[in-house]
Nucleic acid binder design. Structure first.
Length: 754
DNA sequence: GCGGATCAC
DNA sequence: TATGGTGATCCGC
């Protein structure tokens, strides 16, 4: 009974923390918190949001339990060793040197670096003026979000020391409420001079003064020896004030001492709660418990905690780091599957525009879904050929979405949010020399070496090994060159038809779970078959495969006899990663390993050792090499084949090719197998065609078998391993998610052709 | 690389 | 009344 009450009380407390009501919030002191909490609890009880918050809170509680369990197992000896390590290492490196090198502290820890975060509202409205002012003090100032900026005015201060008074003089424009904005701007009569000194404090006063004069918005600021402290300082005298921590150890520690850890940037409600469970609320408590912390948290975490407790932070403003990701997401009321697809496309379109603005190409596409219960899920695919256009992104995203739909089928996906994120951007070098796009390669009449940047080269020059190790694609490329002219004369498709086809395919896809009106598209000739029976459609494919395509296209309305049901179960290839052959990311720095053991000798870590372990940390974070396994999430089997061969060739000949943006736009694709121009620009459809071309023989064989054996059982896997190997995985459009793949190992030809 | 989670703004 | 969007990072796998 009592326990249950306690449980309720603590879960309630946790939730209130989640909902953002805690003692830290400014302005809450005078209010009856208990009353407000009660109202909020009552109001949100039972809502999906509330339920989800409870769930999340429960997860945090479980994490805490784990940590406490760990804590209970920590021995005194371990703690002692950790204490020595976490103290001596840091003090040796950060402070112990002080005696030997008096200048160290001032130089390394507390230089005359002044960082000023400014907090104002409606920053975007006045960003230009503001920005202009800030640039005068630090041309490299760093904007953080829309309403904050960090400045390093150290250099400026030096310069300003020698300034004459008139250079430090500004004028107060007294605001006359009788005048409107324009009159006020023009008014020059009501001005008083003010002179600001040369100290950091006075300079910051001046900045705030000028900002207020120009925008009539107040700003708060902090002056401190590093970014973390400066940020916390600026919170001290909000909304219109400033606070300074002098660049001295004592001053810093004094400020830090009783500071609640929640005030520290980077410590959020979850971290706060976890540390609170360890009886750590203030920064000095954090320092006191540093030994325990080092045993319970990860290397990066405890080092971070330790630096916080010592008031250490970044002392330089990093130049605008390169963007790592770009995303867009939308919240909405529940929508249908078809609407989800079109929303997905819309998001891709928005994203493509943003990517274009920054000239970026990304290799990873992530779909984010939040269901009506507020549960968030992300699904990602990384492709070899970077994406940037709406079509390219959508091609990946829609497969991810489809996988998720199929995972819950026949239930619909009940969503309240969808988002698309792209990441893994190509750097300039990669963009410049990006692998030539498959689309360009497949265009009729285009030579692989076509480029404006390099002189034209012959096939031999570019692929010196081609003759001795002639690849399939090289051969095909060569024959295509020869037959191209003739073929294009007869086979050139009508552009309008192309567009029609494309839009038709799009409109069909969202409705695929709805069996009412099915449109089959032949993967060989791309002819659409509306409302035709599966049997009739199968017959059509049979004919296409046996080469009687042209007649069929001219008369696809005639009824066929001798129906043959073709039901191929395609097993996706399980692209098993050999985990043992991968570099061990779990490798711990030597320092930690030392710490975890109970070695009783040599408990004093050497500074040198520590530095070494730091180095090894850095090397651990480097990326792994190219995964040579043709992944099933590669959007097309054709692409993967091209990729492998192309890499081989390009690396052996050291020829690098530029990228061709927007390659999918208005291009005619030529199948490298049958050498015929295809009626589609949709890569997915085109790839299917190539698949079918490549597997004609096998499919034929299967068809024959099914004829002789009777109809293949839909639910059974084909035992013909040839079909499932290597390329079949990508035949199935939803083969994107690693997790989904094993569950979705079967696919009928019916769904495949839809 | 992927997916979940946390955090800041 | 109903509970946002964007970007970064970390951890465990």
């Amino acid at each position: 009974m009592e326990n249950a009450d306690k449980g309720n009380a603590s879960s309630r407390e946790g939730l209130l923390l989640r909902l953002g009501l805690n003692d830290n919030k400014a302005g809450m002191q005078g209010l009856d918190k208990e009353k407000i909490n009660k109202i909020i609890m009552e109001a949100s009880k039972g809502s999906k949001f509330y339920e989800n918050e409870l769930k999340k809170d429960q997860q945090v509680n479980e994490r805490i339990e784990k940590i406490l369990k760990l804590k209970s197992k920590v021995t005194d000896q371990q703690l002692m060793k950790a204490q020595i390590k976490s103290t001596s290492n840091y003090h040796a490196r950060r402070f112990g040197v002080r005696a030997a090198m008096p200048g160290f502290i001032a130089k390394k820890l507390c230089p005359h670096l002044t960082i000023v975060p400014l907090n104002f509202k409606k920053y975007e409205e006045v960003s230009k003026e503001v920005r202009e002012i800030l640039a005068e003090y630090d041309s490299h100032f760093m904007p953080m979000g829309l309403d904050e900026a960090y400045l390093n005015i150290t250099e400026y201060l030096e310069e300003r020391k020698n300034w004459p008074e008139d250079k430090r003089q500004h004028f107060i424009k007294t605001y006359n409420s009788a005048l409107n904005e324009q009159q006020h701007q023009q008014s020059t009569t009501q001005i008083k001079p003010v002179v600001f000194g040369a100290s950091a404090e006075e300079v910051v006063e001046e900045i705030r003064f000028r900002i207020e004069q120009k925008t009539r918005l107040t700003a708060s600021a902090g002056i401190a020896p590093n970014t973390m402290l400066a940020k916390m300082c600026s919170d001290k005298n909000k909304p219109n004030g400033q606070y300074r921590i002098p660049p001295e150890r004592e001053a810093v520690m004094n400020f830090i001492k009783d500071l609640a850890i929640r005030k520290v940037p980077g410590i959020g409600k979850v971290t706060e709660k976890m540390l609170k469970a360890l009886n750590i609320v203030t920064c000095s408590e954090l320092y006191q418990q540093r030994a325990l912390i080092s045993l319970l948290f990860s290397e990066t975490s405890w080092r971070n905690f330790l630096e916080i407790s010592l008031g250490l932070g970044s002392t330089h403003l990093e130049r605008d780091g390169e963007r790592k990701s770009m995303s867009t997401e939308r919240t909405f009321n529940e929508i249908s599957a078809a609407e989800q697809y079109s929303l997905c496309q819309e998001l891709c379109s928005d994203l493509a525009q943003d990517l274009k603005k920054e000239g970026l190409k990304a290799r990873t596409v992530t779909l984010k879904l939040k269901n009506v219960n507020f549960e968030v899920k992300t699904r990602a695919t990384t492709v070899m050929s970077a994406v940037s256009t709406e079509e390219e992104i959508f091609a990946v995203a829609k497969d991810l979405l489809r996988s998720e739909m199929e995972a819950v089928a026949p239930q619909p996906l009940r969503l309240r949010l969808m988002g698309i994120r792209v990441s893994g951007f190509l750097n300039e070098e990669e963009k410049k020399y990006q692998q030539k796009s498959i689309v360009n390669f497949l265009e009729p009449g285009k030579h692989i070496s076509t480029t404006g940047l390099f002189p034209r080269k012959s096939e031999e020059e570019i692929f010196p090994n081609a003759s001795e190790k002639e690849s399939f694609f090289n051969k095909k490329r060569a024959t295509r060159q020869q037959t191209n002219q003739a073929a294009s004369l007869n086979m050139s498709p009508n552009k309008q038809n192309l567009q029609d086809m494309k839009s038709l395919v799009k409109s069909v896809e969202p409705a695929e779970n709805n069996g009412a009106h099915q449109i089959f598209i032949c993967p060989v000739c791309f002819e659409e078959h509306q409302d035709s029976t599966l049997e009739a459609f199968n017959r059509h494919i049979d004919r296409c495969l046996s080469g009687t395509l042209e007649e069929d296209i001219t008369d696809n309305s005639k009824s066929w006899e001798n129906t043959t049901e073709l039901s191929v179960n395609m097993e996706k290839e399980e692209c098993q990663k050999d985990k043992t052959s991968k570099p061990q990311i779990e490798v711990q720095p030597a320092e930690i390993v030392d710490n975890a053991t109970n070695r009783s000798t040599d408990i004093f870590p050497k500074l040198q050792d520590d530095e070494h372990s730091r180095e090894s940390e850095c090397s651990l974070s480097s990326n792994f090499g190219f995964d040579t396994c043709a992944k099933q999430d590669f959007p097309s089997n054709v692409l993967s084949v091209e990729k492998e061969e192309y890499f081989e060739e390009s690396s052996s000949s050291e020829i690098k090719l530029p990228c061709f943006p927007d390659a999918t736009e208005n291009k005619v694709l030529v199948c490298p197998v049958c050498n015929l121009e295809q009626k589609t620009t949709d890569l997915a459809l085109f790839n299917r065609h190539v698949d079918v071309c490549l597997n004609k023989g096998i499919i034929k064989q299967l068809t024959e078998e099914s004829k002789s054996l009777g109809i293949l059982d839909r639910g059974q896997n084909s035992t013909n391993s040839t079909v499932g190997k290597k390329r079949s995985g990508t035949l199935v459009p939803q083969s994107t998610s690693k997790k989904a793949k094993s569950n979705n190992s079967k696919c009928t030809i019916e769904s495949f052709f839809k």
